[in-house]
Each structure stands twice: as C-alpha cells, then as structure tokens.
Write a protein that binds this DNA or RNA. Structure first.
Length: 610
DNA sequence: ATAGGGTTAG
C-alpha cells in the first residue's frame, strides 16, 4: 500500500496529474485502500487537471473511508472546491472538519478575501477567535486584504494592535498588507511610518506605496517612490511599471513615461499585458496618440482593457472614426465589449457631436449587448444632446434616468447651457450641482459666466458675493509645459517667469504674424464689463498663449509642442493657435480639462467642435 | 514516514 501511495504522490508532485489519477484507479482496482496521503495527492492531481467531477467522487470515497476527516485531506478538498468557484461547497467541508486548526481557518479567510467576499472573511476571523484558535501571519495577511478592500479603518487599527501584540509586524507580508489598509483608507502618513520602520522590504512593499499614492491622486509622490526604489536597487516588477506609468498618465508627464517605457523594454516587462495597457493609457493621456497606437499594435496578448484603453485614447483625442474602427475590430475579435467599452464609444461620439451614431450605439448597447446604462453612459448622452443645443431633450433624458442623477450629469447639462447661453436651465443645473457639492467652485464660475454673457451684471455680482461669503475663489487658469524634464507653469498675465521679456517679444511677433493671416480677436470670450481694446489686451495674456510663446523659444524647431491646461480652452485661443500652428509650422497639442486638441497647418483635430 | 495556507495592479 505504501508503494502505491508513494507512486501517486510522486506523480502528483511532479506535474504528472494524469498518471497520478491512472495510478490511483489502478490501486483501487487491485483492491488496496487509499490512506490520507493518497487522498491528498490524488485530489491535488484533480485540481491540476480541473477534474472537478472526479474530485467530488473522491470526496465521496473520503467520506466512506474509515478515517475521520484529516486536516491535510480537508485542505486538499477546500482547495478543490474553491478552485472551481464553489466556495459554499468548501464551507460545507470546512464545517465538518472536527479539529479546525490555524491553517484551515486561514485558508477559508484567504479564499473569501480573494473572491471579493470581505465581510465573510472578517466573519470567519471572528468565529476563529471565538474558537480560541490563535491567528498567525498568514491569517493576518488575508484578513488585512479584506480590510483594505472595505477601506475599514477602525478594524484596521484593531488588527494593527493585535498584530503588534503577537509580534507579527516583522513579517513582510503582514506589514505590506497593513500598509495597504492605511493607504486604501487614505491615511498615507501611517503607511509611510510602517514603510520607514519595516524590518524587511521587498518589491511588494515599494509597489504598495507607489500604488497607494497613485490611487490617492498623488502622482508626484508615486513617481518619487518609484525613483527611490530604483536608487535602492530594488528590482521592479510588472506591477511597479504599470503603476509608475499610471502615475505618469495622471500627470500627463510624457518624458518620464517614455523613459519608463524604455526600462520596460530592457527588462522585457513590456510584453506584459497589463504593462502594455498602462503604456497605451499613458501615451494617450500624455497626448502622444501615435505611440499609444504603436504599443497597441505591437501587443501580443491583448485583453479587453487593451481594447477599451485604445478606444478611450482615440476618443480623448477627438478621433471618433479611429475609435469606432477599433470598436468594430474588437467585435470581430474574441473579446466582447463591456460597460467601459461603451463609455469610450459614446464619449467618442460625444466629442465629435455624432448624434445619430451615439444614439444608435446607446440603443444597441442595451438591446444587443444586454448592458444596463450606467451613470457615465447617461452623462455622455446628456452632454452629446446638450452640446448640440438639444437642451430640452437632454433634460428629458435626465428625467428618464432610473436612478438618482449624479453630479456629473448636472455638470454636463450646466456645461451645455453655458455654451448655448440658456441662463434659466443653467441656473437649475448649477443649483443641482451645488446641492450635491456645495464647494464646487466651477459651478459658481460657470453660472457667473452665463450671467456675464447675457450681460446680467447684477446676477454676476450676486454669484460672486455668495462665493466670497463661503470663502471660495475662482480657480485660476493655468497652463504648463515640460521642457527637458522641467515643468514651466503659467497663469493669466504671468510676469514672474525669468524669461518674460523674450516671451513678450514672441507674443508681439505672433500677434503681428497671425493678424496678417486674418486673425480677428473674439472679444466675446472675455466676460468682464470692460472696453473692447482692454478685452483684446487680456486675450493675449491667456496662460496657454504665454506657455506657447515660451515653448516656441525653448524647444527645437519642428518638434511637437505639448501644452496642458486645467480649464477648457477658450474660443479665441483656439482660433489663434490654429493660425499660429500654420505660421510656425509646428504641431501644437493642447490638453484642456476634457480632451486633446491637435493643431496643425491651421486646423484643429476637433474640427472646431469641443 | 508523509501531505496543507499568504500580500501588490488596468
């Protein structure tokens, strides 16, 4: 009997699952009784072959055998059930274990945590404590994972104390998991403390910090962590690279992003699907749509995220036909469009004002793909209708939304009202926004702009007053560019730059040149109660123009210029930059709060619809 | 005699 068992075990251990199963059935045919070790080995082979049915029949054998459910066999069974997604089956096996030890408890907690059943994982831990079983580092690592995904700080603190009491903080898995809890709860200070005090650090330790900062929107800190990690000679893995690229994307930092891309090529991590997806996203968000597409084309193993990222990237750049071509191609591939795919597709239509197409995709999404529209889909449709001036239809759509409209929906409607000067509806939209987010300064500013456009200066003053009462200020218009690794930031009428005299000279020259090409200042965009020549002067102080002038001085001729700004680009700057792109023969990319504009040869990729 | 469990990402 021992030799039969030894054979089954040997096969199972060495990845010969098929032979293990054959050996097991032969053993039974010749009438030998399997023991615990035989069961463990053959169950392992079943999991390896995904032979769930076989596994369950062996479970039957185990129950019939004279052995009481052994802890080793029970773990093998738990593994079998959870591996085929039958966590309830596993729970039943677990309940029948006569003497549950720390390993069986920890196993169940781990599997609940991994299958997104955080509450169940925590429930198991409570039962475990009632059963007076002492948890170990494995238990805590899993428990903390659930705690992190729930973002439950009070529980995290309790577990932290417990960990300290048991002296388990020195375990790198436990301290990593605890750091993650604090970062998911938004308390990076605590994560930093743990990070600094950690006895042992591995690449996961660093990744947890990089990801933590990234998810809290602190791209700079995330990138700094990444650079420190390189300095400390800790080897990055695919998680590191994808997260660092994500930070670059959030900062629209093309240079660091490109450098990290080279690092991934050197280390071969560029072949990783998730890193590839992060590269598409990074290039897209940094304004380099051609490289985004290049990465997409070179990818060996795309997943749905790759397709979605490419569609969204094109959409962000106003290249609706490219976005829709990728969507078409996706449908011909093995991947099925999901919710996020349609967010990309609809926003592509939205960015180009393709009303019929947008409506058709919206209908098809529900009818052909069975996807229930979510808030993002409705936001696209409201903006699509509203932007085209169909404000009543947009309003009707909002009324038809089966759930409570989010602040994004009202913001979209408000934006459309501003463009079409619908003061009354705009006021309603602004009120809704401010009900939900009383500190939304953009809503106040848009409302005030609308009143100003209608020359209702009394209302303007009123809005300004209520802002002042709350101690809120208008978000200043900012533009920035990256030149040789340095970021240069400009505000409206900025005179603080050391090279301001050169910049002003360049602006003067540009003004003369584009006036000769037919530029006429559009003073309507200056919403102040002042004279036209003063308005004209103010237009030339807009931050994007100052940034552009600086870029023309400080970047090599012929290279593309990338400008980032925090607000929507104004109509006059748009007109001016179009002509400038022709005069200076440069490609000028401007990313405003919503999207990218590619100016070249006197035209913009947005076809003047934005 | 011998066999079992864990963290990070789009």
């Amino acid at each position: 009997m021992v030799s039969w068992t030894g054979m089954v075990a040997c096969y199972a251990e060495n990845d010969h699952s098929k032979e293990a199963l054959e050996c097991f059935s032969e053993m039974r045919n010749v009438g030998f009784m399997p023991n615990n070790y035989t069961f463990v080995s053959v169950l392992k082979a079943c999991v390896g072959l995904q032979e769930i049915g076989m596994g369950k029949s062996i479970h039957g054998c185990v129950l019939k055998s004279s052995y009481e459910l052994d802890n080793y066999v029970s773990i093998a069974l738990l593994n079998l059930y959870t591996d085929c997604g039958d966590i309830r089956g596993a729970q039943c096996v677990f309940e029948d274990i006569p003497r549950k030890d720390v390993i069986s408890w920890s196993f169940m907690i781990a599997r609940y945590a991994q299958s997104d059943q955080s509450e169940a994982a925590i429930g198991m831990f409570c039962q475990m404590r009632k059963a007076l079983v002492v948890p170990n580092q494995f238990t805590f690592a899993s428990l903390l994972q659930s705690c992190a995904s729930l973002g439950c700080l009070s529980l995290g603190n309790q577990i932290h104390c417990f960990v300290l009491k048991l002296g388990l903080l020195s375990d790198v898995f436990v301290s990593n998991a605890l750091m993650d809890v604090y970062s998911k709860c938004g308390i990076m200070e605590n994560s930093v403390t743990l990070f600094v005090d950690a006895e042992t650090k591995n690449e996961v330790t660093w990744n947890t910090m990089i990801v933590g900062y990234g998810q809290l929107g602190n791209g700079e800190a995330s990138l700094t962590m990444f650079m420190n990690m390189l300095e400390q000679k800790v080897l990055p893995n695919e998680v590191t690279y994808s997260s660092a690229l994500h930070a670059c994307a959030s900062l629209a930092a093309l240079d660091p992003g490109t450098q990290i891309h080279s690092l991934t090529i050197k280390t071969k991590f560029d072949k990783d699907t998730i890193v590839g997806n992060a590269l598409i996203d990074m290039y897209g968000k940094c304004g380099d749509i051609r490289h985004a597409r290049l990465v997409f084309d070179m990818m060996r193993n795309r997943d749905e995220v790759s397709w979605n990222s490419m569609i969204s990237a094109y959409s962000m750049h106003g290249l609706a036909s490219e976005a829709l071509r990728i969507f078409q191609w996706m449908q011909e591939s093995e991947f099925k469009p999901n919710k996020l795919t349609f967010v990309g597709v609809l926003s592509a239509c939205c960015n180009m004002g393709l009303l019929d197409e947008g409506q058709a995709y919206f209908t098809s999404m529900v009818r052909d793909y069975g996807i229930e529209p979510c808030m993002e889909h409705y936001t696209c449709m409201v903006w699509l209708l509203g932007r085209l001036g169909k404000l009543d239809k947009a309003m009707k759509l909002i009324a038809d939304i089966p759930f409570h409209p989010s602040v994004m929906i009202w913001r979209a409607l408000l934006g459309a009202c501003v463009i079409h000067n619908d003061v009354e509806l705009g006021r309603v939209a602004a009120e809704r926004v401010l009900e939900m987010e009383p500190w939304d300064e953009a809503a106040y500013v848009l409302l005030s702009n609308m009143y100003a456009a209608a020359k209702r200066w009394g209302n303007v003053a009123c809005v300004r007053k209520s802002m002042k009462k709350k101690g809120m200020k208008k978000e200043p218009g900012l533009s920035w560019i990256e030149v040789q690794g340095n970021t240069h930031l400009f505000t409206v009428g900025d005179t603080s730059h050391p090279e301001i005299r050169l910049i002003n000279g360049m602006l003067q020259w540009l003004k003369v040149r584009i006036t000769r090409e037919g530029y006429v200042p559009n003073c309507c965009v200056v919403l102040l109660d002042i004279e036209d020549d003063e308005k004209e002067r103010l237009l030339w102080l807009h931050s994007e123009r100052v940034a552009l002038a600086f870029a023309l001085i400080r970047t090599p001729s012929g290279s593309p210029i990338r400008i980032l700004k925090n607000l929507r680009i104004c109509a006059d700057c748009h007109a001016a930059i179009k002509i400038i792109s022709k005069v200076v023969e440069r490609e000028i990319v401007v990313r405003d709060i919503n999207r990218f504009h590619h100016f070249q040869d006197g035209v913009c990729s947005c076809s003047d619809y934005w």
